[in-house]
Each structure stands twice: as C-alpha cells, then as structure tokens.
Write a protein that binds this DNA or RNA. Structure first.
Length: 225
DNA sequence: GACTGATCATGG
DNA sequence: CCATGATCAGTC
C-alpha cells in the first residue's frame, strides 16, 4: 500500500477530497494499492478505510478523530443518484457501563460531530462497487438548529442509559440521533447498571444519525453551493 | 421505500 | 478485547 501523509490543514484535506469527486472506486483503489472486493457484504467498512487511506487519516480504530491535528472526523456516506443518503450513519459507541458523559458538552458524540468531512459515494444495487463514483465532499459543522436537535436527542437517550431503563431503548427514540445495537451479533452483551442499581447483561449500543438528518445536512450544502 | 435490529471485517 | 469502518436484510 502506498502511504499518504496526513494533510496539514483543513484546506489541504478538503482539496484532496475534492479531487476524488467524479472518480470511481477503482481509480482510488489503484492509487492506494487496494484490491476492490466484489461487494461490501463481507467488507462493510472497506470503502471507509480506502478513503481514510487516500486522504491520509491516521487514527485507525482509536477513539480519536480521523485527523487528530485538525479535529476532523471522516465519514463516507452512500447516496443515491439524487445525492440523498441511503443509510444511517454510525457515530460512536454509547457507553452503558456508567462512563457516558453527564452533559452534552462533554459527550463524545458532540466532539465526533463537531467537524465532519462527508464524502458521498453514489451507489445503487446495479452499479458494481468498483464503478461507483465519488461525489463532492462537504466539510460540515452543525449549525445552531442542528446542534440543538442533536443535543435534545442526546439528552433523552442518555437519560435512558443513566437511569438503567435499557428495556425501553428502541431505535425509534430520537428525531435525528438514535441508539441501535452495535455488536458482532445478537448474542453479544455487556454489563450495565439496571434501574435497581444491579449489574445486568444488555446489548452493546451505538449512536447513529438518521438518514433523514444527513439528508437535510447534504441538501443544505447543495442548495448553498 | 423507510426503518430497525443484526451483522461482518479490521487493527491497535 | 474493543472501537473503528459501516451495510445487510427482514419487517413495517
């Protein structure tokens, strides 16, 4: 694999990402020396890792922004031909062992989302992975409305976790941010304090952004272009 | 078609 | 082991 140095500024990062626009996956994979899998079924994170590689992200799987010096998180996002996100976006784990932040200001979710480089990839079932094209990237920070919505959801969801009401946690909670299982499979579990203050086994959870939210984020970008 | 619970691979 | 990278796939 060719090694790509980390960008030294947000401008450089954005320029690099902009140079991907219009290129397809095969083109990027060739530059980085990656083999393109047939599909993503057994390689769900492959595309994200490919883009990390070509843009010089360094954090790997550590709990840090992808570009630690810039404080920027990288997210590839599958979009349809109209530029609309097709999937929800995983943000980070939701600690249920009591280590979840007490306030939104200290929440890892907030830090993760404070500055995100969205890299859209136009994908539909008919197009082979290698031929899927990159769209125009967006370096985004939540506007006050978006931040307020995220915060409101986080406060509701974190209250469920803090109170130990795991039985009531469902993906339906949250307008823009939701909690969903984040595990190898349904048999996975971890310890958490339940409503009675007893340690109990429950499903590992992650915070996700609803596709409706990222749709509005990207739509605002295209409109203001 | 959107939503939600389930799942797969990788690297430090 | 655990967080990262996410998409899959059945159901509503």
């Amino acid at each position: 694999m060719e090694r790509f140095q980390a960008p030294v500024s947000r401008e450089e990062l954005l320029e690099r990402a902009q140079r991907l626009a219009g290129r397809d996956v095969a083109w990027v994979a060739e530059r980085t020396g990656h083999f393109v899998p047939e599909n993503l079924k057994r390689h769900k994170g492959w595309l994200g890792e490919l883009v990390e590689s070509v843009l010089g992200a360094t954090a790997g799987s550590r709990a840090e922004p992808d570009f630690p010096d810039l404080g920027i998180e990288l997210k590839t996002i599958p979009v349809d031909a109209g530029g609309k996100p097709r999937e929800s976006t995983y943000v980070c784990v939701a600690p249920i062992d009591g280590s979840l932040a007490a306030s939104w200001d200290d929440a890892w979710v907030r830090r993760k989302l404070s500055s995100v480089l969205w890299v859209p990839i136009v994908s539909d079932k008919e197009t082979p992975l290698a031929q899927r094209c990159f769209g125009r990237p967006l370096l985004w920070s939540p506007n006050p409305t978006e931040e307020a919505a995220l915060r409101a959801d986080w406060e509701v969801l974190s209250e469920m976790i803090h109170s130990g009401s795991f039985w009531m946690i469902r993906a339906q909670h949250g307008e823009v941010l939701q909690l969903r299982p984040k595990a190898a499979n349904a048999r996975d579990w971890e310890w958490a304090l339940d409503e009675d203050g007893e340690w109990a086994q429950t499903t590992p959870l992650g915070f996700y952004l609803r596709a409706t939210f990222t749709r509005s984020v990207l739509a605002r970008h295209y409109r203001l272009r």
